[in-house]
Design a protein around this nucleic acid. Structure first.
Lengths: 350, 350
DNA sequence: GTGAAAGCGCTAACAG
DNA sequence: CTGTTAGCGCTTTCAC
């Protein structure tokens, strides 16, 4: 069983037919008329010998490997990568493709990343996914263009390549709306200091939602800090201790779950109970944090799985000639970030 | 550039030599004597045409793909997977191999996992790594044996396959020793309830270390609960509230970082400051938790990266005939778990 | 020193 | 309905 040396030829011999016939029945070639009983003979022989096709030979002949390359920036350092990979892997498997994953680094030189693409190209992958670990703008290796490709979680500085990104602005709206709907009128924002799209778009979403609720987003308190736990702690202390008590927010929207974790600590130190005295909503839905904080954190999920799966679908459609990627390259496709309700939001104290 | 249609034949034509010669110089074949100037011509032509080898054709001919299959159980659900993959990927890259990653699930049927192995086999990977997401005993698909394979982070129920696992017992010793060395004499253990190797081995390490320090490990307080934050919280409350105050531990060794996170909450509720009133050491070194708790958690790291890299090395050595995997299959190779010192350990209050 | 030719395992015209 | 045959792009034995 699983004898790696039996080829189509052996099956042909055993079944008493030609290799053509074997190929026809094993691949269920549509135009080939083969008598049912012959088919049976062939299948039986194949099973009996434990025949398994040699995909390399097939690929060489058909110029199709059925492999997709995934170039992933910093696969290990962020838990998000896993979800992108999972989404991509499942989508690929469902359509009979496999993933060849190469890890690269955001810090790696263009040449090094180009070499990675080259490795993928030498193996004749049918298409390439380039995934970054957070939504940003990347300089793509030029040889990426040699094969259908799509960008996951970022946009190309050069533009002109199909990309899928999270809808940051709308995600922020979702988060802030949850707070507004709970009855909060004094809502603060703990923002990131990095100059990345999310920083600007989430702020925009925050302000817009407040404005639309008649709450004057322009005047709402915003504190920025590095997007880590410590930054969140510091920004939260600042925002919670400023001004007269009547100005202090009763709810905080945090740039990400790590900052929210810092806000939890600040709240604890200030004697503020969550969610009774202070409601908090995060962003990212990092399981390890969001689900494990006490109380569990209500947050907005990044659609990593979905982006990975979507990208693979587009790629395969393009490879199989069902789509033209160029048509989608003009503007990135944007995906919704759903709210994950847990226990950190409640109405403000009366 | 990067024209995917130029082959060795085109290079030969351009350089005015035969394909044999091109192959010889491009592969730096040792026994082939080629005049230096010819070599130059060939290389120049190759570069000029942007030739890149077709690995598929090479593989078909040489029966070597230079690809390693990695079957990973639940890649996405645990952050550990990333480190195994990273270790494997870097080790593979360093030796000119690439990884083909397939995601599977611990819950998947044997048949489904066998089909995944089959997919890898059809692509003629040179070897296979089978990685689980926590140290346990797995039922391996039988076709795994068709190609050199090594198990990462688990042992086979069938035995007889090279495997690498963390040294749980010694890891626990390391953790407990840190507490003993800080001067603690009343040390408790928050253990997991699952029947997995780590549960038993860490307990063993805990008791042994205490015994060797003259502290009577058999009598030391142990509370078990599911290995999540909530379980850690509950077990910690139980252990911290029982008996007279003179019996209450001044230090806690936790089965993992999540349980330690729960212990932090219990301590806070009981008005115990960490590490002044209570020292804590965890296990796993889950970055997101350990580094972000306040104070940052001292813990024992699982050698995921190292195991991934080690496994790849062995696999490649076996593939290249430098090792015989069978020699190592008798017993799993065990890897050390180093202590990561952060801020949750201090001497007990005087 | 260099080249001709066989063949890795498979698919797909093209014949019959 | 089924078989013959020519490659896919490369490596490698064997001749020259």
């Amino acid at each position: 069983m699983g004898n790696k040396n039996v080829g189509i030829k052996d099956v042909a011999l055993a079944a008493g037919v030609s290799v053509t016939t074997v190929s026809h029945v094993l691949n269920e070639v549509a135009y080939a008329r083969v008598r049912p009983e012959t088919k049976e003979k062939v299948r039986a022989a194949a099973a009996q010998l434990g025949y398994e096709p040699n995909r390399l030979a097939q690929a060489l002949r058909t110029q199709r490997t059925g492999m997709l390359g995934l170039l992933s920036e910093d696969i290990a350092t962020t838990p998000h990568a896993g979800r992108i990979i999972l989404g991509a892997d499942e989508a690929a498997k469902a359509r009979g493709y496999n993933l060849m994953i190469l890890n690269t680094s955001a810090a790696a030189s263009l040449e090094s990343r180009q070499a990675d693409v080259e490795a993928l190209l030498e193996r004749r992958v049918d298409g390439i996914l380039y995934a970054t670990m957070y939504h940003r703008s990347v300089d793509l290796p030029p040889n990426l263009g040699n094969v259908p490709s799509v960008l996951v979680d970022s946009v190309s500085t050069g533009g002109n390549i199909t990309a899928v990104i999270p809808d940051e602005e709308r995600g922020a709206r979702t988060a802030v709306s949850a707070l507004v709907e709970a009855g909060h009128t004094r809502i603060g924002f703990l923002n990131n200091t990095d100059d990345v799209p999310a920083t600007h778009l989430r702020l925009q979403g925050f302000r817009n939602t407040l404005d639309e609720a008649g709450l004057d987003g322009g005047a709402a308190p915003v504190e920025s800090a590095p997007s880590e736990v410590q930054g969140g702690y510091e920004a939260a202390r600042r925002i919670l201790e400023r001004g007269r008590s009547a100005d202090v927010p009763t709810a905080l929207f945090c740039y990400n779950d790590r900052m929210a974790m810092g806000a939890y600590r600040a709240a604890a130190e200030l004697g503020l109970a969550i969610p009774a005295d202070l409601s908090i909503v995060g962003f990212d839905d990092q399981q390890l944090i969001a689900a494990n904080l006490y109380p569990a954190l209500t947050t907005v999920a990044l659609p990593h799985y979905e982006m990975g799966a979507w990208a693979v679908e587009q790629l395969i459609d393009a490879i199989e000639g069902k789509t033209d990627l160029a048509l989608m390259a003009a503007a990135p496709t944007v995906m919704d970030c759903p709210l994950v309700r847990r226990d950190s939001v409640a109405p403000p104290r009366a």
